[in-house]
Computed example of a mutant assay.
Amino acid sequence: MLITLAVSGYRSIRDAILPLEQLTVVSGANGAGKSSLYRSLRLLAEVAQGRAIASLAAEGGLESTLWAGPEHISARMRRGETPIEGTRRKNSVALKLGFAAEDYGYAVDLGLPAPVPRTMFGKDPEIKSEALWVGESLGRANSIAERRGAVVTGRDASGRRVELSRDLRPFDSMMTHAADPVQAPEMLSLRERMRGWRFYDSLRTDRDSPARRPAVGTRTPALSGDGADLAAAIATLREIGDGPGFDAAIEDAFPGASVDVSLQGGLFAVEMQQHGLLRPLSAAELSDGTLRYVLLATALLTPRPPELMVLNEPETSLHPDLIAPLARLIKRASRDSQIIVVSHNSHLARELEDAGALSVVLQKEFGETRIEDLEPPRWSWPKR
């Protein structure tokens, strides 16, 4: 389980270190930084996939994602005695992301590249440093592997510091290029765990949503990020997962209704039987909110729960009557996976908090995302 998330220099997040629990709900007003926090978690996962640089480029490059405010907001600025303005920068430009789990922690520091002649990739950020450690916070004694520039060092079986690589490219992470079952088994293990994290923020329910159309189906233990394989995922859940639990979640939200999968010309199709109707409704006939709830139920009741599942604004298009059933569904799923919910719906946040979730409330102050009334955990960033 992740116990700490740390973000520095990303969009409106100048510096945030927040605790996490088995079930955590992140809420706040529009523009408070919820999406930035969600994206920072996705970026961390993409480090393990080797896609972090490409993801930053898709967001407009490192310079467009960096904290846009001053390096330091003085007390006089906060009191309004002096205008908020930049001063001479003391520290290097950096975007830092990290987490600590119950066993291992990991952090990465990305910065601006040094000028290189004759390259078309001069705007790509560079990985300046990385660290992998044991325990809650990085220290000299508990470091397992560190990367500074192109050099990666680790520890051998006797605990001595050894060199794992000395020519790592600035766009390659040690998590993808230095993980080794013999020399760095902890790094390899953590990388595979990070690759198993699941994110749901683009479950499509529009008229052209692929979830509304019959599709070729194969066994699908985990619903895809866009929900395109919904029918196959439901059929798999019924075969090897908790079919009765899925039925109960549908009944909880839509009394008297049931969801099943039929074969139509060799294609899998979702159908919903509702109380009082003489025929089942196809997925194409379902409302956006109904389809979204079915998608979420399928994702959350996966027969192969991930270590971490992150939901971004799952309440989108849901009728208020579905918020309480959704909260109960999320609570049930949190028995098998750590779940982080990012939501702007205060009703859902309260329902989850009442169910035992840790509540993280974000607020915006002088353009900076801040966390209300939570003591930050102990944290140290790796040095360049």
Rank of each mutant, 00 (worst) to 15 (best):
A100G: 15
A101R: 07
Y104G: 00
Y104K: 01
G105L: 12
Y106S: 02
A107K: 08
D109R: 13
L110G: 07
L110E: 07
G111E: 07
G111R: 10
L112T: 14
P113W: 04
A114T: 13
A114N: 09
M120H: 07
M120V: 08
D124S: 12
P125A: 09
P125F: 08
E126K: 08
I127T: 05
K128W: 03
A131R: 10
L132R: 01
W133S: 05
G135D: 11
S137I: 02
R140K: 12
A141W: 00
S143D: 01
S143W: 00
E146H: 04
T153W: 01
G154D: 11
R155P: 09
D156A: 06
A157V: 03
G159P: 08
L164M: 10
S165Y: 01
S165T: 03
R166I: 00
R169K: 11
P170E: 14
S173F: 12
M174I: 04
A178T: 06
A179Q: 06
D180M: 05
D180A: 06
Q183S: 14
M187A: 14
M187W: 05
M187I: 10
L188V: 00
S189F: 11
S189D: 12
S189N: 07
L190R: 01
R191G: 10
E192V: 01
R195N: 11
G196E: 12
R198C: 06
R198N: 06
R198M: 12
R198Y: 03
Y200R: 09
D201A: 15
S202W: 03
S202D: 13
S202K: 14
T205Y: 04
T205W: 05
T205E: 09
R207K: 10
D208V: 04
P210Y: 12
A211D: 05
R212T: 07
R213L: 15
A215G: 11
G217Q: 01
T218G: 11
R219W: 02
R219G: 00
T220F: 04
P221D: 09
P221I: 06
P221M: 07
L223K: 12
S224I: 00
S224V: 00
S224G: 15
D226S: 12
A228V: 00
A231M: 09
A235Y: 00
A235H: 06
L237T: 13
